[in-house]
Design a protein around this nucleic acid. Structure first.
Length: 594
RNA sequence: GCCGGCGUAGCUCAAUGGUAGAGCAACCGCCUUGUAAGUGGUAGGUUAUGGGUUCGAUUCCCAUCGUCGGCUCCA
């Protein structure tokens, strides 16, 4: 059983679903004319969608929560009953959304979660207190099984009916419930911790990046501290690529309309592309992807089977129109740099090539401190291009690589893009949240469109396999995830400033700069805090900036050739010889995984 | 794009239908300091932008931009 199925089978899931009913009952008490839509349990709670006469306020949520506690105290039993479609329509005569659902159940089509079904479904209703809901269940026996101290309504937000943006916008109330108040506390603490680690907040506090109304929304300005981290990450990325058989390529930011016609992007991706620029009567588009350029590099000369595999990598900056409402810090922006690569190989090389790229990806992700990684294999969808036997060979190779790498993975049947199957890698961060980073995608479309070939042993032209691969995804998004994963306390090798030297009094200044000079010569990133502040204030500021090492220097240290080390976690090893500190730091600086 | 909230100094936030205030940061001093904020002073704002209502708007209304929570979409 998958994690999801286990959850949906659990008592907690029933409790959440039941609490959604209780909430709906409370909302209808308050707004008898309200219309109810759907209210499922979700990963960490539940929601219910309503059409109400006015927007809800936080005060309304408090009141609804109070009403819910009363209903819970009433120990209302959940009574299940199967009904005919006619009867159901009578029960929900004044609930148009429910009528729509009943019609769906009657004719197949959609179930109450909006999933397509082929056959007419059994229609069941659950009654608890005065509230009757169209619902498949299951529920807890009675509302008394819900712990009133472990319930909390979280927020209200807009949501489209049936998730369709052409349908009416409803009000969705999100709530959560747990088995015990302690679990609720823990959940709320985790939310608080997520806020403390929010990359937008830390980005400001650590002076990493900004965006600016005048520059344009979704366009990121990397400040020196952020750019330093990016540079270090990129340098590592570059070294690893060069060491593993990649070639670097560079491509322009715009390309002629005909290029995007050949690639097909003007056909299926146009709504994400910026308006064309006219140059000497020709239209040019800002690139939303790098692939077409890499294909042209491949095509620029006749390729022999001996040349393959070819691996072209580029940190390619692309621009995509994203609707304003979806933009989010560094995670979703309009201009970003993909760490892109395209592999071209012969069919017989394909399994090895997948093995290679999977291993390579996993090693890089681990080096950045992500060691919990899950894989998702997506296979051929209904609408697809390319030969089914190629699809199946590719899928088999992807799956074989996952097995060989000993990865835990899930298969998303039919979840591939129209042009090929893929593996996505998701990492868990320090708070256990999953983020998709890497993607390894077959492409049966572009080699065809650009007519890529290589000359085989037989002297004939053959079509190569092509694999797209992004490892970190985009530098922007990856940086955002890195910030949140480490809560701003980057591992030493990535820290923009690795050590701050803190002279206690002015007379220690010369020695402070002498120490700084030695550390810099050894390749460390160091600053001397020469402000006329007290040592305590300097330590406080260095702690807030999450600088890994603070080196306090006073009379004793100066006399003995020492530094007094304090680490950002509060650990205080105290005075040591400068040489000893340097030896210790060298080891940590070189360590990729912290 | 849609629903709802928010937009006051670099940052975090007060206040009011009668021409805006604090702390931190910045700047200028004093203090010369031993493991998370020493101290005095100075400067800093067309209250996001544009309209409207009003004798008077930063406050009320509308639009635009930005932003936050979601929805839809996604690296």
């Amino acid at each position: 059983m998958s994690e999801k199925e286990l959850y949906e089978d659990s008592q907690l899931y029933r409790m959440r679903h039941s609490t959604a009913h209780v909430m709906a009952e409370a909302v209808l008490e308050k707004f008898p004319e309200g219309k109810v839509a759907i209210g499922p349990a979700i990963d960490d709670g539940f929601y219910y969608d309503f059409d109400l006469p006015r927007p809800l306020t936080p005060e309304d949520l408090k009141e609804i929560e109070q009403r819910m506690r009363k209903l819970i105290a009433g120990r209302e039993h959940f009574e299940r009953r199967e009904v005919s479609a006619e009867e159901a329509k009578q029960i929900f005569a004044d609930q148009p959304f429910k009528i729509e659902l009943i019609e769906g159940l009657e004719h197949g089509g959609m179930d109450e979660d909006g999933n397509p079904t082929d056959q007419p479904q059994v229609i069941s209703v659950y009654k608890s207190g005065k509230f009757v809901d169209l619902c498949r269940g299951p529920h807890v026996e009675h509302t008394g099984m819900i712990n009133p101290k472990a319930v909390k309504l979280m927020s209200v937000a807009g949501a489209y009916w049936r998730g369709d943006e052409n349908k009416p916008m409803l009000q969705r109330i999100y709530g959560t419930v747990w088995e015990t108040p302690e679990q609720l506390e823990e959940y709320l603490w985790k939310l608080e911790e997520a806020k403390r680690r929010d990359h937008r907040k830390l980005g400001k506090e650590l002076d990493l990046f900004s965006s600016n109304e005048e520059v344009g929304t979704g366009l990121i300005l990397w400040h020196p501290n952020g750019a330093r981290i990016r540079h270090l990450a990129e340098r590592f990325w570059e070294d690893e690529h060069l060491a593993h058989g990649y070639d670097f390529v560079y491509s322009p930011h715009i390309g002629k309309a005909s290029l995007w016609e050949t690639s097909g992007h003007l056909g299926f991706y146009k709504e994400n592309m910026y308006s064309p620029i006219e140059i000497e009567g020709q239209e040019y588009y800002i690139k939303p992807m790098n692939c077409p350029f890499h294909l042209h590099i491949y095509k620029n000369s006749l390729r022999s089977y001996r040349d393959l595999p070819l691996r072209y990598a580029e940190k390619g900056t692309v621009y995509r129109y994203e609707r304003s409402g979806v933009l989010h810090g560094l995670m979703r922006v309009r201009g970003f740099t993909q760490d892109d690569a395209h592999h071209f190989c012969r069919p017989d090389q394909m399994p090895d090539e997948i093995d290679f790229v999977l291993d390579f990806s996993l090693n890089i992700l681990r080096a950045f401190g992500f060691d919990k990684i899950r894989a998702f294999l997506s296979t051929m969808p209904e609408k697809s291009v390319g030969e089914p036997e190629h699809w199946h060979a590719a899928e088999a190779a992807l799956e074989a690589s996952l097995k060989r790498a000993n990865m835990s993975y899930e298969v998303d049947e039919g979840g591939g893009a129209f042009y090929g199957p893929k593996i996505d890698l998701k990492v868990s961060d320090a708070l256990g949240r999953e983020w998709q980073l890497s993607t390894i995608q077959f492409d049966f479309n572009l080699p065809e469109r650009f007519d890529l070939t290589y000359i085989g042993e037989d002297g004939q032209a053959h079509r190569p396999y092509m694999i797209h691969r992004a490892l970190l995804g985009s530098m922007e998004r990856f940086f955002g995830i890195l910030i949140e994963h480490y809560g701003g306390a980057f591992p030493v090798w990535l820290a923009p400033t690795q050590a701050v030297i803190i002279p206690i009094a002015d007379r220690h200044m010369d020695y402070a700069f002498e120490v700084a000079g030695k550390l810099k010569a050894a390749g460390m990133r160091v600053k001397v805090d020469e402000r006329a502040e007290r040592m305590n204030a300097k330590i406080r500021d260095a702690e807030k900036q999450k600088v890994p090492y603070m080196l306090v220097i006073g009379d004793k240290e100066m006399e003995q050739g020492q530094v007094a080390l304090r680490k950002r976690n509060g650990e205080n090893p105290g005075p040591m010889l400068l040489a000893d500190f340097m030896a210790m730091a060298k080891e940590e600086v070189e360590k990729k995984v912290s």
